[in-house]
């Protein structure tokens, strides 16, 4: 009887052990399959279930190239400072050495129709916001490195907050101005062969060496203005598109990585537009005598027209569209 029990017990033990090992094999096999995979899945950006309604909360880890951050702090922030203040310094030094472009024979007093009132107004619709966007954008991108260390925390906080508010609001008129100027003015800005010659002598603005006294041909717009126009058109598009993503995240719902890329593209475009803007402002106000009048009244002096835009002046004289301002 005893032996019989013993044998039964032995059979039971063997059976249970087999069953257990079978069960544990069944369990360990899938465990081996997922070994180390949770971490790699999370790093690859796996999303899951969560009760939270917070933005992007269903994804534990979002990975992107962290060098984006260094590009912003090490290159773009000083880059925008250089584009603004560096260009101003370069231009001041250039004008000190080179002098400005004077009108030969002075002002004629006869004002030639060049821009419509509408053209002048869309110019300023884009230009005034553009200046404010450059200054506030400078605070937002470079401020923490170049301004914050020198002012108090409270003053810095209101400065950067004000910059953000102005930047957000000014974006809208800027984009309208950019779109109108780009579309309406493009036909006068198409490159022509004589633009190459204009570039070869730097527009005749250099008052020494072999360039002195040159007056290259130019149509309604010269090659430099065309370059500015197309740079403004292209980078204006990039800065507007990336700006829209950052300004209306609820409308476009960009991913976090796309938003960061937009931030980089926005800064790169800003640097280029800022550098060009400084050149543009200097050319119109200081460098080219009589140039500013175009965007004040829409008329330019006849001497200015023949000196800087000879082909355009010849053309309007020939086809009869030449129109003088009524002398009061």
């Amino acid at each position: 009887m005893n032996r019989w029990f013993k044998q039964l017990g032995l059979v039971l033990i063997v059976a249970l052990t087999t069953a257990f090992s079978a069960v544990s094999f069944a369990q360990s096999a899938p465990a081996a399959e997922t070994e180390g995979q949770i971490w790699s899945q999370l790093k690859a950006g796996a999303t899951g279930e969560t009760t939270s309604h917070g933005q992007f909360h269903n994804q534990p880890i979002n990975t992107y190239d962290l060098r984006l951050l260094d590009v912003r702090s090490d290159w773009l922030a000083p880059g925008l400072m250089l584009a603004l203040f560096g260009m101003i310094i370069i231009f001041v030094v250039f004008i000190k050495i080179n002098g400005i472009s004077k009108l030969h024979g002075g002002f004629s007093g006869k004002m030639v129709y060049r821009w419509s009132k509408f053209d002048v107004s869309i110019h300023w619709l884009g230009a005034i916001p553009c200046l404010l966007l450059i200054l506030t954008g400078l605070v937002l991108l470079s401020g923490r490195y170049f301004f914050q260390p020198y002012i108090g925390e409270g003053m810095w906080a209101s400065m950067v907050y004000g910059a953000k508010q102005v930047h957000d609001v000014m974006a809208i008129p800027f984009m309208i101005g950019w779109a109108l100027m780009t579309v309406l003015w493009a036909k006068n800005q198409l490159p022509k062969l004589y633009d190459l010659k204009w570039m070869m002598v730097v527009g005749g603005y250099i008052n020494f060496g072999p360039f002195k006294g040159k007056h290259p041909d130019a149509g309604f717009a010269n090659a430099g203005e065309k370059l500015w126009f197309w740079a403004f058109a292209a980078f204006g598009l990039v800065i507007s598109a990336s700006g829209m993503l950052l300004l209306f995240p609820n409308l476009f719902e960009p991913s976090r990585t796309l938003s960061l890329i937009a931030l980089i593209l926005h800064s790169v475009s800003a640097i280029i537009i800022t550098a060009f803007s400084i050149v543009h402002i200097f050319m119109a106000t200081v460098m080219s005598e009589g140039g500013m009048e175009c965007m004040v009244s829409g008329y330019c002096d006849e001497t200015w027209a023949t000196q800087h835009h000879n082909l355009w002046f010849d053309e309007i004289k020939e086809n009869g569209t030449l129109k003088y301002k009524d002398q009061a």
């Binding site: 994804q59 880890i61 209306f248």
Partner: peptide
Amino acid sequence: DTCIGCGYCLYACPFGAPQFPKRGAFGS
């Protein structure tokens, strides 16, 4: 007191930690 609510930290944070109380126009 210094935060301006621009949301850049939310884009940069790998863990989605920064959260904002409002979702208004102009990304405010």
